[in-house]
């Protein structure tokens, strides 16, 4: 189990592990994560997956809520451009999150904490790589509390 960060310390404790929420579309990315499983591709244990019908279903407020209530990172993953099960939901999602990223900076969340990726149902390996990369990057960035509690 991941340990919570120790407050009021400038560097994260070594045992700290990022807590990441993953919103995965049912048709591509959730299936891609399933494929990583059936292919037994190991990856970091830090993402908790929420299945949504389409990346376009994800409301930016959900992401903000995740940050507000303790997540260190949020990953939204959908079908590749052009492959959306619902034709173009992922395009809307992409546009929305580009805008959201700018807002995040504004509200004091390091925009690097929000990641958007395309993982298809056949990309089990890619899913594993995405999780690995996101986890590694968040380890470098540190707990979200530091964004919040840091000076200025």
């Amino acid at each position: 189990m991941s340990d919570p960060p120790v407050p009021n310390e400038s560097t994260p404790a070594p045992a700290w592990e990022p807590n990441i929420v993953g919103f995965l579309c049912n048709w591509c990315s959730y299936a891609g994560a399933d494929l990583a499983g059936t292919s037994r591709i190991p990856y970091a244990c830090n993402v908790r997956i929420i299945r949504v019908p389409c990346s376009g279903r994800v409301d930016p407020l959900m992401i903000l809520r995740a940050f507000r209530e303790g997540a260190d990172g949020v990953l939204v993953s959908g079908c590749h451009p052009g492959d959306c099960h619902y034709i173009e939901g992922n395009y809307y999602a992409r546009r929305k999150f580009i805008a959201l990223k700018q807002l995040l900076d504004h509200v004091g969340v390091d925009p690097r904490r929000l990641r958007f990726s395309w993982v298809s149902a056949s990309e089990g390996r890619k899913w594993a790589e995405v999780v690995e990369t996101v986890t590694r990057e968040l380890l470098e960035i540190g707990p979200y509390r530091y964004d919040r509690d840091g000076d200025d």
């Binding site: 389409c54 279903r57 994800v58 409301d59 939901g89 929305k96």
Partner: peptide
Amino acid sequence: CEGCGLCVAS
């Protein structure tokens, strides 16, 4: 309605 939820989030 195919149930994608795009309108919901938009």
